[in-house]
Nucleic acid binder design. Structure first.
Lengths: 114, 114
DNA sequence: CCAAGAAGCAACCATGAAGTTGCGCGTCAG
DNA sequence: CTGACGCGCAACTTCATGGTTGCTTCTTGG
């Protein structure tokens, strides 16, 4: 199970891809601090058309990072932190492998020169 | 400084973009466990041309995730974990903001119904 | 009831990213 | 020394992505 995270590669890559855009990252940041926000509000201060905002939000939704509901004539978006946690854990496992590898290397050198 | 990570958005997005490809993630995983590996070795088992592998590695290098040195007629690649840590910390801050927001919400509801 | 506001839908454009092929250059092994 | 191996460089194709515009649909405020 230690290196079982190799199998998660194909599932995690699209997640990072969804995070790999400044517009989407900015909107995610807003959703992390504020409650459900409408499409219009999320587009405030971002210099792209409404349609572009909608497309970005759909990308985030496809990646499972946000969810949305139609309320009246607005669509309200909110965070869905599970996938965010998944991405974090993936990086954690990677860092952990790196660390244990360094540790093995350190011990090896230590034994060598004792 | 709490919400200062908004300013990191433009810097972090390209990093996630570099992580958002299964081929690159797989190669990173190999470099996390093993020591410096040559371009050829890194391409083992990946069904793309050597040039494609090289391009992916250059993307990772531009993102600061790996570094390389020419040794003889090979180019050896190795992890450079700093940027990986940066990405991890970014997600950590995002999750933290989400958590504190939930906490505030919980306290608010609690006070409301006391 | 009617007009304005917010979304959805579809077509379209442009650019960049992923991939390929072909060729040239240095480097090592026999 | 020579051929094979590993790379680097450059041109080219393909296609997904980000972005736009125009029009329709639905909902609410007056």
């Amino acid at each position: 199970m230690q290196q079982g995270y190799d199998g998660n590669v194909p599932a995690t890559a699209p997640l990072f891809a969804a995070l790999g855009d400044p517009v989407r990252l900015a909107m995610l940041a807003r959703l992390c601090t504020g409650g459900p926000l409408s499409t219009m509000v999320l587009g405030q201060g971002i210099e792209v058309s409404r349609q572009a905002i909608t497309k970005h939000l759909q990308v985030l939704e496809d990646a499972g990072l946000v969810s949305s509901d139609r309320v009246g004539r607005d669509r309200l978006w909110q965070m869905r932190p599970q996938q965010l946690v998944a991405a974090r854990e993936y990086l954690d496992r990677m860092s952990a492998q790196w660390d244990t590898r360094l540790e093995r290397l350190r011990k090896f050198v230590e034994e060598e020169f004792d």
